[in-house]
Amino acid sequence: MGLVDKGRLPAPLTKLFNLSRSYSLWVYQWGLACCAIEMGAAFGSPRYDVMRLGVIPLPASPRQADFVCVSGTVTDKMAPAVKRLWEQMPEPKYAISMGSCANCGGPYWDSYSVTKGVDQIIPIDVYVPGCPPRPEALLEGIVLLQQRIKNEDMAAKWRGDEFTTLQRTRAMEAGEVDREGELISDTRSISDEPMPEVAAAHPEPIVVGGGPIE
């Protein structure tokens, strides 16, 4: 991937790479609670059969995985392990949070030992709500993640600055960056307006069956 490291790829090549990346996703199953069984039904059962979407649910270790599916209640005792798992995964990496517990604490919102949302520990790309979500909902979450990967700027993702094509387009529409992704700052540098914050820390998360989280 020397081409990607050096700089920007030609658009057709990016498209090709993104297409192939999105259809060979190796998922690490971080099954914790009830949702793990529904995740097992989505990934391991003949009825839902996730492999037809190009997702391979078999890696034995997080080091071989493209995205992690955190499904179930994350407790404060478990949280360091989740964090460590996330750090072991190679870039580019994505995360799906499955179930109400992993999203926000769910039915244990007032519990003393439950982490209220795995997004406090790792950045989440797709939230799948439900308690537990049906396997179909998880499959839709995966399809939405694939759409995100298809629209991504690979070089930026590789550099790790999380500046995706989606946000670039939005920034271009707002007149904050030019076509090359550089900040338009020649006039703004002498004005009193504050600098626009273009590169977000992380792309906006997707919520299955809903809009982005505010």
Partner: peptide
């Protein structure tokens, strides 16, 4: 044990 402790007995009190 305890990696999945969610505090059931305390939660049932409220």
């Amino acid at each position: 044990a305890g990696y999945m402790h969610r505090g059931y007995e305390k939660l049932t009190e409220v």
